[in-house]
Measured scan of single mutants.
Amino acid sequence: MTYKLILNGKTLKGETTTEAVDAATAEKVFKQYANDNGVDGEWTYDDATKTFTVTE
């Protein structure tokens, strides 16, 4: 399945996607991606759209 991440960081905004077997796996990938890019904030997940959002 394809999962999407929306980044609403103070210095980085954008979107990315990943292929993962489940939401938990996608979340690990996205949290590492956000961490690597210096984005740390509040996370939400919408199962209907398979979209994670992180907002600083």
Score class of each variant (00 low, 15 high):
residue 2 T to G: 05
residue 13 K to A: 07
residue 29 V to G: 04
residue 43 W to M: 05
residue 7 L to F: 11
residue 41 G to L: 03
residue 41 G to T: 02
residue 55 T to R: 07
residue 1 M to D: 14
residue 33 Y to A: 03
residue 51 T to N: 02
residue 47 D to P: 14
residue 56 E to A: 07
residue 18 T to L: 12
residue 9 G to D: 03
residue 25 T to L: 07
residue 50 K to D: 02
residue 47 D to W: 09
residue 19 E to T: 14
residue 54 V to A: 03
residue 31 K to H: 08
residue 3 Y to H: 03
residue 36 D to C: 08
residue 17 T to G: 04
residue 38 G to S: 07
residue 17 T to H: 12
residue 1 M to K: 12
residue 26 A to S: 02
residue 16 T to H: 15
residue 12 L to Y: 15
residue 3 Y to M: 02
residue 14 G to F: 12
residue 22 D to E: 04
residue 55 T to Y: 08
residue 54 V to K: 01
residue 55 T to I: 08
residue 31 K to E: 04
residue 43 W to V: 02
residue 11 T to A: 11
residue 20 A to G: 04
residue 8 N to A: 08
residue 54 V to C: 09
residue 35 N to W: 14
residue 54 V to L: 09
residue 31 K to W: 08
residue 46 D to I: 05
residue 3 Y to A: 01
residue 11 T to K: 13
residue 30 F to P: 00
residue 22 D to V: 03
residue 16 T to L: 14
residue 7 L to H: 03
residue 5 L to W: 02
residue 52 F to V: 01
residue 47 D to V: 12
residue 49 T to V: 06
residue 2 T to A: 07
residue 46 D to R: 03
residue 7 L to G: 02
residue 14 G to R: 13
residue 39 V to R: 02
residue 55 T to C: 06
residue 53 T to V: 09
residue 38 G to K: 07
residue 38 G to V: 03
residue 37 N to V: 15
residue 17 T to P: 02
residue 14 G to P: 04
residue 7 L to M: 12
residue 6 I to E: 04
residue 45 Y to I: 02
residue 33 Y to G: 01
residue 10 K to F: 12
residue 30 F to H: 01
residue 15 E to R: 09
residue 2 T to Q: 10
residue 5 L to K: 00
residue 37 N to F: 15
residue 51 T to L: 05
residue 19 E to G: 05
residue 29 V to E: 07
residue 45 Y to H: 02
residue 30 F to M: 03
residue 26 A to L: 01
residue 26 A to V: 02
residue 50 K to F: 11
residue 28 K to F: 10
residue 21 V to Y: 11
residue 20 A to W: 02
residue 9 G to A: 08
residue 26 A to M: 01
residue 5 L to Q: 00
residue 22 D to P: 01
residue 43 W to E: 00
residue 14 G to S: 12
residue 39 V to N: 03
residue 41 G to R: 01
residue 19 E to F: 15
residue 21 V to Q: 10
residue 26 A to Y: 00
residue 42 E to G: 05
residue 20 A to S: 06
residue 43 W to G: 00
residue 30 F to Y: 02
residue 44 T to N: 10
residue 9 G to R: 04
residue 22 D to Y: 04
residue 46 D to G: 02
residue 1 M to W: 14
residue 7 L to V: 14
residue 5 L to F: 05
residue 34 A to C: 10
residue 14 G to Y: 13
residue 32 Q to W: 06
residue 8 N to S: 08
residue 19 E to V: 15
residue 40 D to P: 04
residue 3 Y to K: 00
residue 7 L to E: 01
residue 44 T to A: 08
residue 5 L to I: 04
residue 36 D to K: 08
residue 21 V to P: 15
residue 18 T to F: 11
residue 56 E to R: 04
residue 51 T to H: 03
residue 34 A to L: 08
residue 28 K to A: 13
residue 31 K to N: 04
residue 20 A to Q: 07
residue 8 N to I: 13
residue 45 Y to M: 02
residue 52 F to L: 01
residue 47 D to A: 14
residue 40 D to E: 13
residue 30 F to I: 01
residue 2 T to P: 06
residue 24 A to K: 11
residue 4 K to R: 13
residue 17 T to F: 14
residue 53 T to S: 06
residue 38 G to P: 02
residue 35 N to Q: 15
residue 56 E to L: 07
residue 20 A to K: 03
residue 21 V to M: 13
residue 36 D to N: 11
residue 1 M to R: 10
residue 14 G to D: 09
residue 29 V to R: 10
residue 24 A to V: 11
residue 20 A to R: 03
residue 40 D to Y: 14
residue 47 D to C: 07
residue 36 D to E: 13
residue 5 L to H: 00
residue 37 N to S: 09
residue 50 K to G: 05
residue 42 E to R: 09
residue 49 T to I: 07
residue 2 T to H: 08
residue 28 K to Y: 11
residue 42 E to N: 11
residue 52 F to Q: 00
residue 46 D to V: 05
residue 27 E to R: 09
residue 40 D to N: 13
residue 24 A to C: 10
residue 34 A to F: 03
residue 24 A to S: 11
residue 6 I to R: 06
residue 54 V to P: 00
residue 16 T to C: 11
residue 53 T to I: 08
residue 36 D to A: 13
residue 49 T to R: 06
residue 52 F to S: 00
residue 1 M to V: 14
residue 23 A to R: 12
residue 10 K to M: 12
residue 34 A to V: 08
residue 50 K to P: 00
residue 18 T to K: 04
residue 30 F to T: 00
residue 10 K to G: 07
residue 29 V to H: 11
residue 38 G to L: 07
residue 11 T to P: 04
residue 10 K to H: 11
residue 48 A to M: 12
residue 47 D to Y: 09
residue 34 A to Q: 02
residue 34 A to I: 06
residue 3 Y to Q: 01
residue 15 E to A: 09
residue 23 A to P: 11
residue 39 V to D: 02
residue 4 K to Q: 05
residue 15 E to D: 06
residue 27 E to F: 15
residue 1 M to I: 14
residue 36 D to W: 08
residue 5 L to G: 01
residue 19 E to Y: 15
residue 47 D to T: 09
residue 31 K to Y: 06
residue 50 K to T: 04
residue 5 L to A: 03
residue 23 A to Q: 10
residue 34 A to D: 00
residue 9 G to V: 08
residue 13 K to H: 11
residue 37 N to W: 14
residue 40 D to K: 14
residue 37 N to M: 15
residue 55 T to W: 10
residue 40 D to F: 15
residue 39 V to G: 03
residue 6 I to N: 04
residue 29 V to Y: 15
residue 47 D to F: 10
residue 29 V to S: 06
residue 56 E to N: 05
residue 44 T to Y: 10
residue 29 V to A: 10
residue 12 L to C: 12
residue 44 T to R: 09
residue 5 L to S: 01
residue 28 K to S: 09
residue 15 E to K: 07
residue 5 L to N: 00
residue 39 V to S: 03
residue 20 A to V: 05
residue 34 A to K: 01
residue 19 E to C: 12
residue 37 N to H: 15
residue 42 E to I: 14
residue 5 L to C: 08
residue 3 Y to W: 07
residue 15 E to T: 11
residue 50 K to W: 06
residue 42 E to F: 12
residue 18 T to D: 03
residue 35 N to H: 14
residue 31 K to P: 00
residue 6 I to Q: 05
residue 41 G to Q: 02
residue 48 A to W: 07
residue 27 E to P: 00
residue 25 T to D: 09
residue 50 K to V: 03
residue 2 T to E: 10
residue 21 V to F: 12
residue 46 D to W: 04
residue 11 T to N: 15
residue 2 T to I: 15
residue 9 G to L: 13
residue 39 V to A: 04
residue 15 E to Y: 14
residue 52 F to G: 00
residue 17 T to L: 09
residue 51 T to M: 04
residue 22 D to A: 04
residue 26 A to K: 00
